[in-house]
Amino acid sequence: MASAVERFDDKASETFESVGRTTVYRGELLRHPVYSRALHWMVALFFFLALFSGFGIYLPWLFRWFTPIFGGGQLLRAMHPWFGLGFVVFFGLQALNWLQPMIWTPADSNWMRNMKKIVSSEEKMEAPDTGFFNAGQKVQFWEIVGGCTAYLITGIILWVGAPTFGRILVAISYVIHDISALIMLGGIFIHIYESTFGQPGTFQSMTRGAVSEAWAWTFHPAWYKQMTGRDPVQACEEARRQMTTGNKP
């Protein structure tokens, strides 16, 4: 099973790599290949389409000012399930793509215990055992995996409707569907913040695909070590020394 997935992924990655382009300059590391980036932005696109069309069904009296963008309430309602399906399919591919780096490790449990210090910026650098993704990112990933499952099941029930599934199942499904959306929405604010303003230098990992070495040793030290073989703390100290001497006139 696992090997079948890997093979299928490898081929897709190759194809995407031959179409797209990633330039890694000196002093940078390749973070996300074209395949991951393409999937990520398809996920984001369909997520927001589903989210905004979903708002139009969630509270039409509040959101009816933007239903015309989707061609009116009825068309919006008719398209929403397809947007959702697109989101789930692309995220499903992404989930297979990222399954391996997203596996929970003891380092992540430590991270969670340390979270307060990290969030309050008390600790400038991540703990040395933080790998390709940190525990916060993993929590978000697994939340979306769970959310997608909930979306898919309840969404199909709502789509096919009460005549097939019965009115009670529909009445329950829409509550679960809503809760899932609200949790994800709350999470996405944090996600967008962390990958833009909250951690400058992160956004380019999803656009150009490459990050600076300094970004890597600061936020994902274990990954940095794995990629370069150098010790992240030492590398940082070296850079600090260089910076101060270099600044001397």
């Binding site: 969030v119 309050s120 910026s121 400038k124 650098m125 609200l182 949790i183 929405l185 709350g186 999470g187 996405i188 604010f189 944090i190 913040y193 303003f197 909250g198 951690q199 400058p200 230098g201 600076s212 300094a214 970004w215 040793w217 600061t218 936020f219 940082c236 100290e237 850079a239 600090r240 910076m243």
Partner: peptide, 24 residues
């Protein structure tokens, strides 16, 4: 409204704790 707390939270984080910058 609760979901919007996510938005409020990150704005507060930005003006209090502030962004985390690459080191050094």
């Amino acid at each position: 409204t609760f979901a919007l707390f996510g938005l409020l939270g990150v704005c507060l984080h930005y003006v209090t704790a502030g962004p985390r910058r690459t080191q050094p």
